[in-house]
Design a protein around this nucleic acid. Structure first.
Lengths: 332, 332
DNA sequence: TTGAAAGCGCTACCAA
DNA sequence: TTGGTAGCGCTTTCAA
């Protein structure tokens, strides 16, 4: 058994109350006594049991984080932001991955609650009613993070997808491109994919360009991007492709590579997100840089503010983004 | 305040002991009473407070995981393995990232201890004496995971780096390559990089080939791989490069791309690790597949076995690996 | 400035 | 099969 506050009290000849006072600096303690107690603590290497502490103070200094999959680098980036800022305020992260399993998600929400987390951050593509209900039930600070979904009942942190898509399309146009295709997943009307499409078409229409070269994907992964392309990009004399996220863009790039279509010489490709691999592949991907790390950081900052009853500001926070110019895209 | 066991007891007209018995199935309870209690629990949505439970049982069902950086995909993969297997045994993960800061690492080890984690897994490149001391001090199950370091005072899970390097070099030789360069970081003699070099040179020497085309890197990142290369790969008529890890290999590939050296046509490149990006880039990287996920899974399995006083087997577990053949490497 | 004691929510022992 | 109760390690009144 580890040393407890009792041992410290006994060895320093004071009551446990006094020991508690010195370790928490909560009430005045005479200098000599304080010195003595500190000495004993140092000597026997006493460390307060955080569990016992939590039981009485109700402060676990734990934030539950539920993610789909850490292997998605943007998720890992968000978690980094969450963790790093959390640590600044002494909060630790209890991590759960669902791999898209909604059952598991529900289970973890309840689990985290039982573990007395003080707040929760959910990173996932969708929220269903069951989940929604549980979250409302436990009235703890909560932030929903998704690069995909527009669900806005709960606080969120994201960027302006519509405008970002608009801007990068404009950028393409400024580079001289006229026949610009859109590659993305359009089935789900409640997704940011739609917003991106709208941004794209707005930019196109403003310049009286045709926004109907659409390659619909069946999802938002690399494979989906790869599968959505076909030789019509050549037939239609497309000179550029706006892919609704980086994964799709990489799929597109790979399709081109495998079919002897040179990028960016034959066709320029831009993505959306700036996930870590975007700058590692060749050609390096021109894309919209979503500040994933900051999104996580701001999310937990909000949770902590709420915990401290500070002003939390806007419910839906929009962060700035950047157009990240690289080599997958050239002037024509 | 959330509902407690007392509320359940009161509402179902039994003692808290009885309620405790039904929620833990620890002692026989008459069917009617059990039914009644369960009913009440369901009705008021009672969930046991895990903190209180932990305080008395000493079982927190928490495993502390300290990592350098989740953004390294292999780290994320290990954490996935840890988490997923942990969940099978009801264990949760308390996650801390150090970003290579040894001070922070030490701090987190202590912190996790205070949070009463039952076991700890450290994923990092090195262990220093201070850290070592703390770990020994808290005598909880511990596993050290590193793809880089050979530190073996504590239980580890890894692969046979020497033999894997030997095998992939053999593979290159079988493909017809004779002038094979080694690219890697050789400063630190306690690293697996050295083992890989030895595996490489053993394979070369066995075939009476020259193992001295060495490109020493200053580290093991993509940038380091990029910087270590120069035109001598052409001058020396090298036809293949064995890079001591995937990052270095990708750096090498990028160097070639940027200098109009075609891969694999002009030069074959193999890596080591099979980090996620390896199969995404073009050409896809031929490499040694280290089972990162399994490494994490086996590590936590060991921790849990130790916790359950089961037989833990070997202190240093070696897992199988594979040569992952892809396109960065061709027959000549 | 200090100590005694109550109590956080729960488990586990003892007695009935 | 049940209830009463001590106690896990700590914080926080309340009195002294």
């Amino acid at each position: 058994m580890a040393v407890t506050i009792k041992d410290v009290a006994k060895l320093s000849g004071v009551s446990i109350s006094t020991v508690s006072r010195v370790i928490n600096d909560s009430k005045p303690v005479s200098p000599e006594v304080k010195r003595k107690v500190l000495e004993v603590i140092e000597e026997i290497g006493y460390k307060p049991n955080e569990i016992a502490r939590t039981l009485v103070t109700k402060k676990s200094y734990l934030i539950g984080v539920i993610v789909t999959d850490l292997a998605d680098s943007y998720v890992a980036d968000m978690v980094r932001g969450i963790e790093e800022v959390g640590k600044m305020y002494n909060y630790d992260i209890l991590l759960c991955s669902t791999y898209g399993d909604k059952e598991a998600e529900l289970k973890y929400i309840q689990l985290l609650n039982r573990k007395q987390v003080e707040g929760m951050i959910l990173i996932s593509d969708t929220i269903n009613d069951e989940i929604d209900e549980k979250i409302s039930e436990y009235s703890i600070p909560f932030v929903y993070l998704s690069r995909y979904s527009k669900f806005d009942k709960y606080p969120t942190v994201s960027i302006d997808y519509h405008f970002a898509a608009y801007e990068i399309t404009k950028y393409l146009i400024k580079l001289g491109h006229k026949n610009i295709g859109f590659v993305g997943y359009l089935e789900d009307e409640n997704s940011t994919q739609i917003e991106k499409y709208e941004g794209y078409s707005k930019a196109m229409e403003e310049m009286e360009l045709d926004p109907s070269f659409i390659f619909e994907t069946q999802g938002i992964s690399i494979g989906h991007g790869y599968e959505a392309l076909d030789q019509s990009i050549i037939k239609n004399e497309l000179t550029a492709l706006f892919c609704s996220n980086d994964e799709i863009a990489i799929g597109a790039l790979n399709y081109c590579y495998d079919n002897q279509i040179n990028t960016p010489e034959d066709i320029s490709v831009v993505g959306f997100g700036d996930i870590s691999i975007a700058s590692l592949i060749r050609p390096k991907l021109t894309t919209v840089k979503e500040p994933f790390y900051d999104i996580g950081a701001v999310a937990i900052r909000r949770v902590i503010k709420e915990l401290r009853k500070e002003d939390v500001g806007e419910k839906h926070i929009k962060l700035p983004y950047q157009i990240q110019q690289r080599n997958s895209c050239i002037k024509i």
